[in-house]
Amino acid sequence: MFILTTIQDLIQIAPPDFHKPSPQAIKDAINAKYANKVVLNIGLCICMWDLLSSSEGLIGHGTGLVNVNVEFRIAVFRPFRGEIVKGRIGHSTQEGIWVGLNFTNEVFVPFQNLFENSHFEEGERVWVWDSEGTELFFDKGETVLFRVEQEEWIDQKPGIVQKDENGNVIEERGTAWRLIGSMAQPGLGPTLWWGDQEEGEEQEGGGEQAMVGEQEVGGELEDAGEQGDGREDVDEMVVDGA
C-alpha cells in the first residue's frame, strides 16, 4: 500500500522559518510542498520519511529565500495492482461504488466489477448483491475490502484546458489520480459478510476465483516477482552457455 520514493529537489526556506534549526526547517519545507499531494505517476505523498542529503543554503538575487538542494525519501500511498485494501463505502451511484480511505476518496468500484447478480436499489441508493436468494447490501459507511485493479492518471498541469462535450472550458480541476477497484471475489466486499460462515461460501465462489486468478497472473506483481525472474534468467543463460 505504501512505498518509499527517493526524490531530489530544490527546497526554498522563507525568512520567517529561519529561527528553526535547519533539519526542522528543511523537513517542514518538504512536507509543506509534498504532504497530502498527488505527484503524477508516483502517488499520493504522505510525509517525509528521512533526509538523505542536503546542500548548503544558497541565497539568490532579489529574494531572501534560502535555496537548499535536498535528497530525501518520502512515504507515498501507491497500492499495486492486485493488492487487497481496506476502505469504507462513501456513496453509491448507478455507475458503481465510491470507496473512501479517510485520506483519499478517489477509489471507484464500477458496477461491472461487483459480484454477479448485483443491482442498484434506486430508493435507498445502495448496491445489493443477490447471493442465491439472500440480499446483501453494500451499505454506506460499511468497512469493505476491495482489490486494486488499475489506476487512472489525469494530468492536471496548469497549461491543459479541459472542455466538456459542448466545448465549454471546465474551470474546476478534478482529481489527478483515481484507483479502480473490484469486489467480485469471495472475501471482498463488506467484511461483515465474511465473518464466520466461511465454509459454504468458499465452495460457492471457488471456481470463479480460480478463473480470475488465472487471467491476472501474467501482469501482476511485477515488482515483487522481479528478483526471482532475474535470477532464473541468469540460470538459464548459464545452462545455454555451457
Partner: peptide, 27 residues
Amino acid sequence: NKAEYLQLYNLRPSSQVQLELIIEEAG
C-alpha cells in the same frame, strides 16, 4: 512472494477466505 508477505502484515488474515484473497491461486 514479497507482495504476499506485505499483505499478510497489512491485513493480518484471520480466516481462510481472507488468506485466499492475499495468496495468489491459493487453492
